[in-house]
Computed example of a mutant assay.
Amino acid sequence: MGILRNLSEYIIACLKPPAKRIPKKTVNIRVKMDCEGCVRKVRNAVEDFEGVESFDVNQKLQRLTVTGFIDAKEVLEEVKNTGKTADIWPFVPYNLVTYPYARGAYDMKAPTGFVRNVPQAIGDPKSPEMKMMVLFNDDNPNACSVM
C-alpha cells in the first residue's frame, strides 16, 4: 500500500507544472491556545491541509510546527480561519544569537530559552568582537591553546 501511494504521489508531482511545485519546508507559527479545545481546533485545521507531512502542536510554547510541501502564508491563513490569533514564529533559540540582550531582541513575553529574531542581535562575522570569540573557540582547530 505504501509503495503504491508513494508512486502515485511521485507521478502527480511530475505532472504538475514546475511553477506550481512548492519545496519541502518547515513552518513555525505562533498561535494563542488556552485550552485543549483550542489545540484540537488548530490540529483539525492543519491535519487535513494539502501537502502537510507532519505537524506538532505545542500548547506550552504556543507554537505550531508544520512540515511538508506547503506555503507559509496559506498555513497561516488556515490557522487564522479557526478564529485563533496567529502569526509567523518571531523567535530564535537563545544560544544561536550573539547578542541576546540587544535592543529589540530580549522580550519578556518570549518562551523560555528564546529571543526575538532581530538583525541587531546577530553579530557581524567581520567585527573585532566576533574575531576574538572565534580565536578562543573550542571548535576552532587553530584556536589558542593557552586556555
Rank of each mutant, 00 (worst) to 15 (best):
M1P: 11
M1R: 12
I3W: 09
Y10V: 10
Y10I: 11
I12W: 04
L15P: 01
K16F: 01
A19Q: 14
R21S: 08
R21F: 07
P23T: 04
V27M: 01
N28I: 01
I29V: 09
K32N: 11
M33G: 06
D34Q: 11
R40T: 14
R43A: 15
E47R: 15
E50V: 11
S54Q: 06
N58H: 11
Q59V: 11
Q59A: 11
Q62M: 13
Q62K: 13
L64F: 07
L64N: 05
G68T: 03
F69W: 06
I70H: 00
L76H: 04
E77A: 14
E78R: 15
K80R: 15
G83R: 05
T85R: 05
D87A: 06
F91S: 02
P93T: 05
N95W: 09
T98L: 05
Y99C: 06
P100E: 04
A105R: 00
Y106C: 06
Y106H: 12
A110V: 07
P111M: 05
T112G: 08
F114H: 13
R116V: 02
N117V: 06
I122Y: 14
D124C: 04
K126M: 10
P128A: 07
K131Q: 09
M132T: 08
L135R: 15
F136H: 08
N137L: 03
C144A: 09
